[in-house]
Simulated assay, not measured.
Amino acid sequence: MDDDERAFLDDLLAAPTPSGYEAPGQRVWLDRVEPAADELRTDDYGNAVAVSDGSGPAVAVAGHADQIGLLVREIDDDGHLHVGPVRSVDRTVTRGQGVTVHADDGTVPGVVGQTAIHVREEVDDDASVAEQHVDIGAADGDAARERVAVGDPVTVDGAVTDLQGSRIAGPGMDNRVGMWIAAEAFRRAADADATVYAVSTVQEEIGRKGAGMVGFDLDPDAVIAADVTHALDYPAAPGEKGSDVALGEGPVVTRGSTNHPVLADALRSVAAEDGVDAQVQAAPTHTLTDADTFATSRSGVPSVYLGLPNRYMHTPVEVVDTDDLTAAADLFAGFARSADRYAPFAVDI
C-alpha cells in the first residue's frame, strides 16, 4: 500500500459512519473514485456507486460504509445519556471507553461510565449496552439537551495504530477496509473491457438493507462483496469456531451457500494466474454479509463474499494487514479484466 492509498484509508477511518448516518464516509469515498469514474450515483439513503463503462459483462465490487455504534435514546434529568446499540456492540468492550456523540451542531466528547472496582461489589458481566450510560459532563438534563438530542449517533473512540510490518489496529476496520477495496479495485480496473461498478452500501450492519436497494437498481452480472472475516490466529481464540484464515495470507474467497460456485472458482483461478495470495473459507448456510442480499436481488445475482482477515472484530482494536487489502484490490482488478472468460456466470446443469 503506497502513501496515497494509506492516506485514503486513514481518511475513511477518520470519518464516522454509524448505520443510518454514513454520509461523512460516503463523501470521502466518492471523492476518491470520481477521477476514474464515467458516472457517479447516489440514492435517497446514501448508497454510492461509481461506474466505468465497458462493452463486456457488468461486474461490481462492493463494500459497506456503515460501522457499529450507539444511538442516544434518552437524556435523563441528571444529564446522562442512555444509549442503545447499533447492532452487534460488545457490552464488555464499551465500558469505560471514550466516545464521541455526533450532534447536529458538531461533535460532543463523552465517556461510557464504569463504576470503579474499589466500590462495586462484583462485576456485572450481564449488563447490556442499553443499561450503560454516556457521561458528557453535563450539569443536568437541560445542559445535556442543549448539546445533544435523542437519535444522535455515538461512536467509540480509538486511534489508528501502526503495529509491526504492514499491520494496523483501530476501530471501524469493519468495514472501512471493504470501502477501500471497492474504491481501489475500481481504480485498478479502469482499463477493463467489462463495465465495472464500485459500490459503497449503507446499513449492512442492521440487515444488509443498502445492498437490497443497490442490487435491484444495478442488476449486474456478478458482485464481489468485500467485508471483514474472522482471523482467529491468536492465543485463546475459540478453536471450535476457528478456521485456517490468518493475517497476511491474502483475501479469503468464500465457498458454499450464497457464494456462486462459478464466481468463486473464477476468483481462485485469477489469483493463481496473477500470483495473488488468496485463502479459502467455507460458509455452509450464509455469510451474513451483503453477498447474501445481492445474491437474491431481482431474480438472483451471482455473488461471492471476499473476506479480509480481521482480528478482534467489533472492538476498538481491530487488526488488519494492509497487504491483504492490496491483494484484494489486485484480485478484483484481475477478475474484471478477464470477466468475459467466465461469463455468463451460471451453474452448468
Rank of each mutant, 00 (worst) to 15 (best):
G25R: 14
R27W: 00
D31C: 05
D31V: 00
D31F: 01
R32T: 02
V33W: 00
P35H: 13
A36K: 01
A37N: 12
A37Q: 03
D38Q: 03
D38M: 06
D38Y: 06
D38S: 05
E39A: 13
E39S: 03
L40A: 01
L40T: 01
R41H: 09
T42Q: 11
D43A: 04
D43F: 00
N47P: 02
N47M: 05
V49D: 04
A50V: 00
A50Q: 00
A50M: 00
S52R: 14
D53A: 14
D53M: 08
S55A: 15
S55W: 02
G56T: 05
G56Q: 06
G56I: 02
P57R: 02
P57N: 02
A58M: 04
A58S: 14
A60D: 08
G63V: 07
G63F: 01
H64E: 07
A65E: 06
D66L: 11
Q67P: 02
Q67T: 15
I68H: 04
G69D: 11
G69F: 05
G69E: 12
L70I: 07
V72P: 05
V72K: 06
R73Q: 14
R73C: 07
E74M: 12
E74R: 14
I75D: 06
D76M: 04
D76Y: 04
D77S: 14
H80Y: 15
H82E: 09
H82V: 12
H82S: 10
V83N: 14
V83Y: 14
G84N: 06
G84H: 10
G84V: 09
P85M: 08
P85I: 10
V86K: 10
V86R: 08
V86Q: 07
V86H: 09
R87G: 00
S88A: 13
S88R: 11
V89A: 04
V89T: 14
D90F: 03
D90S: 11
R91S: 15
R91N: 15
R91A: 15
T92K: 13
T92A: 15
T92H: 15
V93H: 11
T94N: 00
T94D: 03
R95G: 12
R95C: 08
G96Y: 09
G96I: 11
G98S: 12
T100H: 09
T100S: 13
V101N: 07
A103W: 02
A103C: 08
D104W: 01
D104T: 15
D105R: 12
G106E: 09
T107P: 06
T107Y: 06
V108M: 07
V111Y: 09
V112E: 05
V112T: 14
